[in-house]
């Protein structure tokens, strides 16, 4: 038993040593460059969203909440189109979180598997895989909102 413990700790040590070796030679992503890129692209996407929602408010006689939803919907549409013609992945490669964090990332996460899995059929391919990456987002978002609603009901309502 003791011998096995010794072997295990020797193995652990080897693994730790190797992890250090790996860390030393593995090039890391450029933090500053990545952050700058995601900052300006992400900022620009939000600004576009604001512009669309302003347009909706002014010319489509939407109230302010509807206008904000409208802005997001236009961004979703543009993302779907750019994903379809094969440009969005290049923007995402440049911007990283700049396209992931805004609603564009959510839209891209639904559109890209829907396209990719089309050969597996309309139902189990496109229909099911639409939610592979975006599904968890809805699961946790909805669950959290129900919890918030119930807590509010108990303490505030």
């Amino acid at each position: 038993m003791k011998k096995q413990d010794q072997q295990n700790s020797a193995k652990e040590l080897l693994r730790k040593q190797y992890a250090r070796m790996v860390e030393k030679v593995t090039p890391s992503s450029k933090l500053l460059e990545g952050c700058l890129r995601s900052f300006w692209v992400g900022g620009l996407i939000c600004t576009l969203g604001q512009a669309f929602s302003d347009l909706g408010y002014r010319y489509l006689s939407l109230n302010s909440t509807e206008a904000s939803t409208f802005g997001s919907m236009v961004l979703v549409f543009i993302t779907a189109l750019l994903t379809g013609i094969g440009i969005f992945d290049r923007i995402g490669k440049y911007a990283g979180a700049g396209t992931v964090v805004p609603i564009t990332g959510f839209a891209n996460a639904m559109v890209s598997p829907a396209m990719e899995y089309r050969p597996e059929g309309w139902v189990l391919g496109t229909g099911a895989k639409l939610f592979t990456i975006a599904g968890p987002v809805l699961v946790y978002g909805i669950t959290a909102s129900v919890a918030v609603g119930l807590i509010y009901c108990l303490i505030g309502g």
Binding site: F39, G42, L44, T47, G49, Q50, G96, A97, V100, V101
Partner: peptide
């Protein structure tokens, strides 16, 4: 809008690069 939206994205990028979280987890 630009500055606040940009900052939220920058934070996301920083978390991805520092913690190796996948984009799906960030979402």
């Amino acid at each position: 809008v630009f500055l606040c939206g940009g900052m939220l994205c920058l934070m996301g990028e920083w978390i991805i690069l520092k913690t190796k979280l996948t984009p799906a987890r960030i979402l």
